[in-house]
Design a protein around this nucleic acid. Sequence first.
RNA 1: GGGCGGAUAGUUCAGCGGUAGAACGCUUGCCUUACACGCAAGAAGUCACAGGUUCGAAUCCUGUUUCGCCCACCA
Length: 877
Amino acid sequence: MSVEMDKSYNPASVEDRIYNLWINGGWFHSEPDDNKEPFVVMMPLPNVTGILHTGHALNNGIQDLVIRFQRMRGKNAMWMPGEDHAGIATQIVVDRDLYEKEGKSRFDIGREAFSKRVWEWKEKHGDIIINQLKKLGVSCDWDRFTFTMDENYQVAVREAFCHYFEKGYIYKGNRVINWCPYCQTAISDIEVEHEDSAGHLWHIKYPFKDGSDDGVVIATTRPETMLGDTAVAVNPSDERYKHLKGKTVFLPVACKEIPVIEDDYVDLEFGTGVVKITPAHDPNDFEVGTRHELPMPIIMGPDGKLNKKVPERYQGLTMLEARKKIVDELEEKGLLVKIEDHKHAVGHHDKCKTRVEPLLSKQWFMRMDELVKPAIQVVKDKKVQFIPERWSKVYFDWMENIQDWCLSRQSWWGHRIPIYYCDDCDEIFVSRDEPSACPKCGSKSIRQEEDSLDTWFSSALWPFATLGWPEKTKDLEYYHPGNVLITGYDIIFYWVARMIFSSLEFMGDIPFKYAYMTGLIRDEQGRKMSKSLKNAINPMEVIDKFGTDAMRFTLMFLSTQGGQDIKLGETVLTEGRNFINKLWNASRFTLMNLEDMKPGKPENLQFIDKWILSKLGETVKAVTDAFEEYDIAKGARAIYDFFWTDFCDWYIELSKMPIMNGGEEKTRTQQVLYLCLDTILKILHPIAPYVTEEIWQKLPHKTGDTIMIADWPNHVDFVFDEEATSEMVKVQSAIRAIRNLKAKLRIHQGIIGCKFNAPKETVELLNREKQQIEKQARVEGFEFAENQPDGSVTAVSTDMKFYLDVAGKIDIAEELKRIETSKNKTEAELQKIEKLLGNEGFVKSAPPAVVEKNKVKMEELKSELENLRELSDTLSN
RNA sequence: GGGCGGAUAGUUCAGCGGUAGAACGCUUGCCUUACACGCAAGAAGUCACAGGUUCGAAUCCUGUUUCGCCCACCA
């Protein structure tokens, strides 16, 4: 019988099979259990319209790592998955689909039909991202999968809205909001992306009256809005414009007279010191307009085109078309004084990238002042902790300067606002269910608000709405609050902050203890991934090419605790792939040599065994601590270093001889190998779940059905053996020296630096190296004496005497040069350490261990230097 | 205009008070019966700059330069 494993790891043949094994085992599922401590992670909701990007791969990878780690540590791990209806984002996608297939817009088919279409779309495409997520190997509790439009979830949303309304936090306000002409809806401030663009500052003369040459010059970046001007303003303290007080000016193009008003808002330094006031199309102007009770004509329709309030020749033009026409016209009339270049930020809707227009409009708002207070406090008190800590500053800055939240969207896909209007008595009321009559006058003539809620209103309830809230469920009691939220820092405002105040409001508790902010993933040059640059990496393609584990390992390896952005590309992914393959092959070697193993605890440990087990213990501790502290990369690095360098390069290589020797030695080595492999698989499982499971399933003496729920190793089970460790250091340097062709020369001269009394095992190890060098040396034409004294226990150098003939093959001049550089280097190092040790402060205040170490090092350097001198003397003779 | 982060080997990054580290790439050998997605040996760094604190600074402080983010109603 032999172990059947391919020469290299083939993820495609493993991943789906293993995932099904886990699903069928039901190990992802969690139920409340008072005897076990829960560990809860709430998944950041992917959008129904979404396709998986590398950001998902990163934060779901970390979430899965944390969940698998805690599950193995014996916690009742529950990871809540779900999907967001994603209001406007989805509406845009379906709207486009409708247009492409039937040439219609949503307005052509109406709310009912459109809504039906979105549901159909969701049924058809909603699973795409979920299936992609599964390819990542995520171990979330699919039985609990929640969609933010599920019936239960709708109940929660209505409850929350009614609660806020009844508390007086929700109000209808007439304000200048951000309007997206493409989506034809209001959006909130944070949904506007500002892009600096090279614009102009137009200086325009408003004459005192029709025909007059004289007038005031205003400066504006948006001349088209002058059609909605109802005043011009100057600062009351501005001496230049004292004479304007009480006058009116003539508004060119629109042909009407508007007053000159005084307001502190006007900046004396900027532009001409005179500002045109367009109350319906600029938030500041609106405030000025309110103070001075100015008329506020709205000149733009929902589609972003000028409406009937403007002269006929402008009606139906878009704002930008109107701008051009107005500027032309002003120029013709000689009213355009000058045009300056001016850089300013232009707002765009983050979903559809359309330029947003400020618009006076009636919308529903949520008062934030009260809600924000406790939400700030819990972060101040470290009840909720950001990782890395610096993000809490971003959180505070936003929360402390927060504006009321514009909740309503003129969208047909989402939670319809549960506000009702009575046609008979004008009563406005909320209702938790479908009301049949007005509670005040009993009229049946009532209608529901047409608008929907901002999608983030429902996501804000995620940490408890998924657990059955507003019902008082066992789940809610057991799982809330959660432990950690893992997400990109780009949604701190959208989601993290809103979950915090929502949980505090409805649950009286924080939603999670830690908010771990991942970096953003960029391309190899550090650029943002974008469609236009065509530099986006599709995780599905990465999985096809490198395998899920390789991708996950790469991402974890790069995701440092500082939350730096991550540069991802072929090079690093290849490294991850190589590591996984190395694991596969080390396991293949181990398993091939384990077939006749007697199970049991290894006995009669030799220094090499003690050494690898010491290292293993250290690694287990380092990894456990790192994962507990959410320092993922540190953990990944610890495993990588131990596994590749210590385990593969040294232990496996050195294990070949005792295995060949057979007998007790062999059994012992097999048992140590087994112990190491088993432990490595376990601590690597949270990072690379598929390979580790696949290999673990092949272990001859495993207990249990899956590595997923195997016990996490405990470092105290591995004793740290200092003597073995220092012996190993010596052996390693001896072997390295022997391996080196130049070292052969030193051996020949009898001045090798690694003379020591070695135990039998060490000498054997060295002999093995000797054989290899012999072979290589023969290839290079060296001669040897054949009969060597055997079993020498003392000096390696004596043992290597047969290299005598090497001398003639060495380029003496070249070698002398090398020795000279080497000597200089050693000398410099020596001086450095001498200086350090000569430093009184160092001896007094440095840790004694450090001083000792340096003393030892100095001795070593001294003897090395001496050897070099001796060697160069011999050579030059 | 405010705030945040980075600047360490050719490249990507770790280290964050005690003698400069890893991976990739590069050079030189090797298909050594787990792995060429591999093995061994090697070259490679004024730790951006200038001051300061300290016995000692890549590491702490203060400036400067530079790259990148985020926030902000100066028309």
